[in-house]
Design a protein around this nucleic acid. Structure first.
Length: 501
DNA sequence: ACTTAATTCGC
DNA sequence: CGAATTAAG
């Protein structure tokens, strides 16, 4: 018997593993719910609720071709052992999963066990992430090649062998309790396709301008991340549809074009980043815990840990934009990219908290949590990669720029509803309202300068530079480097011209 | 791979 | 004087 093992990725459309598994007459489409995985700090109730929708949806899709999804709850190895002794497993098909450290370790354990039991485990590619990569040279070309492959089609019909399935456990049965979410994202392929369609044809028009503000981003950004993370849409099909839409836009008149060309190109570049980031975790699974650059290991051990962490977690830092973003994230499970970066930056620089603890908390709040993107971004936002520029967000400036009238702030912070516009980003300056809201837990400018000086001091050291080039070879974007080199050539040319006159 | 603040540009 | 560019915290 063959098993099509649906991992986190639940697709049946554009799923090479499933398509191949179906070539055998005896196929079990299997999904394993692993209680130990759901005990990890980065997983949560909101993600599980989304997953349940997806599982139900996948089952409906499978019923159309005469099959059912076989759900099992428990330890993966024990489950495979049971199935093997009952039916005898010949081959297992799944995609190459790049997920968190727990799933990585599980796969290593399973690999040995499969080998011992003469079970062939076929792991096929699913996106642009390349397994066993030595360094980043040529990665971009490989990515492009993969993205051009036509989607895989499942067969029209497969035989149902009446394998025993269990019901999907309730969140409570996995000790998952509501973590404060009130506005849920709905899982399932039809939901995802609908979002993609409305984004490419309507909502995305001003994406490039409106992605940064939490007031406009909910409508103007794709919000496809959760569907990509759970595989109800594949990154490949999104890229292909975006390319088609791009061609369509090129044919429009200038008036009709409007802001579309710029928005589509901004969106496309973000689609490229997706695999670029996950590749980092594929190449180095310990960046979930360890600084990408070891020079930063001695940093961040002297902050007022518990108090700062607790205040930040609850949205009680005294900075309206930070608190509004955190409280909205708790209740909706989604936040636009820039505001996520601001939350991380504030925790890592102003509060000087280690990203290892804050990133786990954020992961659990994001319904669209994708480890590869999450830890690479967390480290970048905390300045521990050694290859990226230090970017410290000023929460006051972000508020003024992206929520000038305080509409977003007032929506999520009821205690500030009566604060006049003049003081909404600095309520501590208004004596009338100072009692209603937490005073700032750190002084913005002071905290930012202190963080910057510590980081820059470290960056000047020789040992830092040596390791940076190593990190770059492993993880750095070659495209960004080409841009930098071109810029330097341009500067030199200008200098030469100056000297001539 | 999308900050901030200072400085220069351009009308 | 605001927009664009660029150096740097």
């Amino acid at each position: 018997m063959h098993i099509a093992w649906f991992k986190r990725d639940l697709r049946i459309w554009d799923n090479e593993a499933f398509t191949n598994a179906c070539k055998s007459q005896y196929v079990m489409p299997l999904y394993i719910i692993e209680p130990d995985l759901w005990k990890q700090d980065d997983l949560s109730y909101r993600q599980y609720v989304f997953l349940r929708d997806c599982l139900k949806d996948l089952n409906r899709e499978l019923e159309k071709i005469g099959q059912r999804l076989i759900i099992k709850t428990g330890d993966a190895l024990e489950i495979f052992n049971d199935i093997n002794s009952q039916y005898g497993i010949k081959e297992i098909w799944s995609h190459q999963e790049t997920w968190n450290y727990w799933t990585y370790k599980r796969d290593l354990k399973l690999k040995d066990w499969f080998k011992l039991n003469n079970i062939k485990w076929n792991e096929v590619t699913q996106n642009g992430v390349v397994r066993g990569l030595k360094n980043r040279d040529g990665w971009s070309k490989e990515w492009q090649k993969r993205m051009n492959i036509l989607p895989y089609e499942p067969p029209k019909k497969i035989k149902d062998h009446k394998f025993n399935s269990e019901t999907i456990p309730l969140p409570k049965q996995l000790s998952l309790n509501n973590d404060g979410i009130e506005i849920f994202q709905k899982g399932g392929r039809s939901e995802g396709l609908e979002l993609l369609k409305s984004f490419l044809n309507k909502r995305g028009k001003n994406y490039s301008k409106e992605m940064s503000s939490p007031l406009t981003a909910y409508r103007s950004s794709s919000r496809l991340s959760t569907h990509i993370a759970f595989g109800t849409l594949s990154i490949k099909e999104i890229i292909q549809q975006t390319t088609n839409r791009k061609k369509e836009i090129q044919k429009l008149s200038n008036v009709e074009k409007n802001n579309w060309p710029r928005s589509i190109s901004t969106f496309s570049s973000r689609l490229r980043w997706h695999c670029h980031f996950i590749q980092k975790l594929e190449d180095e699974p310990d960046i979930e815990f360890k600084n990408m650059h070891s020079s930063y290991n001695k940093l961040r051990n002297e902050s007022d840990y518990d108090f700062f962490f607790e205040s930040w977690k609850k949205g009680l830092t005294g900075y309206p934009m930070v608190d509004a973003c955190m409280r909205s994230l708790i209740r909706t499970g989604w936040l636009n990219f820039r505001m996520r970066a601001m939350l991380m930056s504030f925790a890592s620089y102003h509060l000087w908290l280690p990203w290892q603890i804050t990133s786990k908390y954020l992961a659990s709040l994001f319904t669209d949590y994708e480890p590869g993107i999450h830890y690479a971004q967390s480290q970048m936002q905390s300045g521990t990669t050694g290859i990226n520029a230090i970017r410290i967000y000023n929460p006051i400036k972000q508020g003024i720029d992206h929520d000038p009238d305080g509409v977003f702030i007032k929506k999520w912070l009821p205690e500030l509803r009566n604060v006049p516009k003049k003081y909404i980003h600095k309520p501590w300056e208004d004596i009338d309202y100072i009692k209603e809201y937490n005073p700032p837990i750190v002084e913005e400018l002071e905290a930012r300068k202190a963080a910057a000086s510590k980081i820059y001091k470290l960056r000047k050291e020789k040992s830092h530079k040596i390791e940076s080039s190593k990190v770059y070879i492993k993880h750095g974007s070659r495209k960004a480097r080409i841009k930098k080199v071109k810029k330097q050539i341009k500067i030199k040319k200008v200098e030469i011209q100056k000297n001539l006159f």
